[in-house]
Design a binder for these strands. Sequence first.
DNA 1: ATGACTTGGTAACCAAGA
Length: 280
Amino acid sequence: MRLATWNVNSIRARVDRIVDFAVREHIDVLAMQEIKCKTEQFPFEKFEAAGFEVEAYGFSQWNGVAIASRKPIENVRTAFPDMPGFAKGHEGPDAPQEARALGATIDGVEVWSLYVPNGRALGDPHYDYKLHWLKALEQYTRQTLAASPDLPLALVGDFNIAPTDADNGDPTVVQGFATHVSPPEREAFAAIEAAGVHDVVRPLVPTGFTYWDYKQLRFPRNEGMRIDFVLGSSALADAVTGAEIHRNERKGEAPSDHVPVVVDLDFASDEDDDDRPMIF
DNA sequence: ATGACTTGGTAACCAAGA
């Protein structure tokens, strides 16, 4: 299975570019974030014409997640347990959930397309929401893997956290003043990893960004951030045979501000057949 | 110079992104 994740920043604004990528790169499963449309507005036909079926989930111009797959998408969920909600003027435990998570089982792999809340600013209600959202994801991860230790689980998407200083090349994102690099966010990311999922891309692609702001020539200056990840359980990580960050997708006509991250998985290979990198 | 992009929705700006 060739699995990719991409914050597309509006599916309707660049659907041809995204389908072209999926076809050209022989992607089997493409998790998308920030589709920026309602479910019924998703351009399903363009994906279907290319051999994909699609599950999409969105209900406003904000957020929205989707999964396109060449194989059947089963057991679809639009939230993980205790996922908190958020709405302007409607904070607290009763706030409605947003379209930020889409889980499914595809060919035996549990895949979640995740769009972690941005946080907006330190001290903003959205920042607390982000931390609560990450805590609920951590708890779901721990409980799921406690019940099914051998489950191939992939948490993929835009985590809106640069886990290390090397993952932040944007000079305006300064610790103490900005989200994405604050210690509580980094601790929340580490806690999810401690719950049993690992960044399966970094061992194979140790450097490189996945996002560059549209403003201030951030891409030509390569002042980006690594905030899009594929976190895999042990069973998933053991199947990884390759990983790529497709930096070229930030170039050309009307790019997203994020680029796709791709992982190759081979569940059939014999454990003793050691012709692939041992990363864990 | 407290911003310099891009998107979608709405009604000519505005919220949101990170």
